[in-house]
Design a protein around this nucleic acid. Structure first.
Lengths: 152, 152
DNA sequence: GACGTGCTGCAATGTTCTAGCAATAGCGCA
DNA sequence: TGCGCTATTGCTAGAACATTGCAGCACGTC
């Protein structure tokens, strides 16, 4: 598949996902608005973690008068619907990404670099937390702080 | 041992710890000030996590003119000396506690309750992170987010 | 097409933390 | 003990991130 065809396929898939999210919003009495469409498009356009500020900039590139408070409110709403995950990576602002991309985060406390790691890495911790405390770990919702290989 | 005798013993131990910290400060050209003494006393007086604001209030109960910015600066310094750990428990302000109490944190994303857990719980994660990514996990520096038994 | 209400933009506000600067006060040394 | 260097402090301003209140707009149902 060519690069263009891939991009086309992703775009088509994104449209389907956006309509699906809107269907879920309408079920709860919510509405489909241009600001929400653009925010979802920005989230779907590329993977990875972005701050509310960054997502706001991407939305504003297409619709300059969408306010940052609308971004925050809609990210809250999407988090409530479990469509996006909000993660605090140590210091600094929270980052958001699609909930579908299940993974954890290793963040170096010195250089700040972030490594995405598969969920399996947390299996032992999750089992022990459940067995001993009845606690259900959500690996994609927090950052594991420590020292990366090069900073040690 | 009576309650009073326990309190006395803890107080005496605290004094020793404070003098020890001051010795380490002086080694680096640092100084022993009343604000630092009170902050350390507050940290040692009871275990557990407190925010800079809470520690500031405890210090100000004894010395009302100690400014909150002094608290922040001294907490930074104590963190650099590895005497306290700073932990971000999900949302909200950072919390501080003595580094000696090695443990991790399970924080419920719904009710916000926090459970302290022994470091061993992180052994599997720590070993996997080291083996696969050369990453050294510091379990006491972050919060594990998830759902507590009663919120599930 | 009209109506109810969910959503938005805007501005103000809140919270947590940091920076700059002049004044103060530890601590080593004579 | 007194002196001088400079680490530390209080104060104020402000940065960074996020939330809130409100009036008006517009989505979606009837």
């Amino acid at each position: 598949m060519s690069q263009d065809a891939q991009a086309d396929a992703r775009l088509a898939g994104s449209q389907a996902v956006i309509e699906d999210v809107f269907a879920r919003l309408r079920e709860r009495g919510g509405r489909a608005t241009p600001a929400r469409r653009l925010l979802l498009a920005a989230l779907l356009a590329k993977p990875g973690h972005r701050t509310a500020e960054e997502l706001g900039a991407e939305v504003q590139a297409r619709a300059p008068d969408v306010n940052i408070s609308t971004i925050y409110r809609n990210l809250d709403e999407l988090e409530r619907l479990r469509i996006v995950d909000r993660t605090h990576l140590g210091h600094g602002p929270a980052t958001y990404h699609l909930a579908s991309a299940g993974h954890g985060h290793l963040v170096c406390e010195l250089c700040g670099s972030m490594t995405e790691v598969p969920d399996e890495l947390f299996d032992g911790l999750a089992q022990a937390a459940r067995a001993r405390y009845g606690f259900a770990v959500e690996p994609h919702r927090f950052a594991v702080i420590g020292l990366c290989a090069s900073c040690q």
